[in-house]
Nucleic acid binder design. Structure first.
Length: 286
DNA sequence: CAAAGTCCCTGGGGGC
DNA sequence: TGCCCCCAGGGACTTT
């Protein structure tokens, strides 16, 4: 489930705990998640200091003093659980340090007395270690499109990348090579905001609609990050699910419920496109 | 190359 | 209460 805003929220929650901390113990509790863990992962993590945390698309990158970078993907159900016996920062309340439980696949202990657990019931997540200086050439990162919140994302880019594409706009926006970080929820929300049907082919979106789509995407992501950021002030810092924007969804998961556009009397519909649900208003979205 | 389908995995929810 | 079935979904891989 985590899309760009949730990953950003999780990363921000990890930052005060992991930054400048040294891994004293890495407990790798199974051989793999989605893919096998890298060779000697525990030994390569132990003794390393976390120099920085970054996000690229839906990936979290932890730059280590060993000149390696820990690459983390939360998949569908991945969570980073933070534990500490003492309150480390005002306003931060962590669960007490506790033994690994079901689905806690990687447990990192830090010299600061905190513990971070990677918990992932469905194991669609992944972890890898790669050289920091060539991190963006990693196979999982190399072909990603631009960040939707970055300066490289604008209507001209979409115009170029949608040219000749016979695929529905919904599928095109989910293609991480075109834009990186959007998932099913925020694609549905952005299309509703910009009045574009998910069924319209990418190559047939007018320039005017593309001009509306870009800010719709940026706005919905920024609002979701802000909603996640406010949840960080509560007690579950790194739990991406709490950061979810679900209370503010306009179409996602609202099949049969009224469209929220002022004056619109249509109900939200759900269709399946390439195996995934699309939610939209047949009246507002053309 | 593009586009569509398949698969991985498990918890949760609906139906009975 | 319990069982069965289906669904959720990111992204690599396979097929068309």
């Amino acid at each position: 489930m985590p899309e760009l805003p949730e990953v950003e929220t999780v990363m921000r929650g990890l930052e005060p705990v992991m930054l400048d901390a040294v891994v004293t113990k890495a407990d790798i509790r199974r051989p793999n998640l989605r893919w096998p863990f890298p060779q000697n992962m525990a030994a390569r993590l132990e003794g390393a200091k976390i120099l920085g945390l970054r996000r690229r698309s839906k990936y979290i990158l932890c730059d280590l003093s060993s000149q390696e970078t820990l690459l983390i993907h939360l998949g569908m159900s991945g969570r980073m659980l933070i534990e500490a016996d003492d309150v480390k920062m005002p306003g931060h309340f962590y669960d007490k340090i506790s033994p690994a439980e079901k689905h806690d696949h990687v447990v990192l202990d830090f010299d600061t007395g905190t513990r971070v657990k990677f918990n992932d019931a469905r194991r669609f997540g992944s972890m890898d270690l790669l050289p920091t200086d060539t991190a963006d050439r990693h196979p999982l990162l190399a072909s990603l499109g631009p960040e939707p919140l970055g300066n490289d994302f604008h209507a001209d880019l979409l115009r170029a990348r949608f040219e000749g594409r016979r695929t529905p706009i919904k599928s095109a926006l989910l293609d991480q090579k075109i834009i990186a970080g959007l998932g099913n929820i925020y694609v549905c929300e952005a299309l509703w905001r910009s009045g574009i049907s998910p069924k319209r082919l990418a190559r047939n979106i007018s320039a005017q609609k593309l001009d509306q789509l870009v800010p719709s995407i940026k706005d919905v992501l920024v609002e979701a990050i802000e909603a996640g950021g406010s949840s960080l002030k509560d007690h579950r810092q790194a739990n991406g699910e709490l950061g979810y924007f679900q209370h503010n969804f306009s179409v996602y998961g609202r099949e049969g419920e009224p469209c929220r556009t002022d004056g619109c009397v249509s109900d939200i519909r759900r269709i399946v496109q390439s195996g995934r649900s699309s939610f939209y208003c047949p009246n507002c979205q053309r």
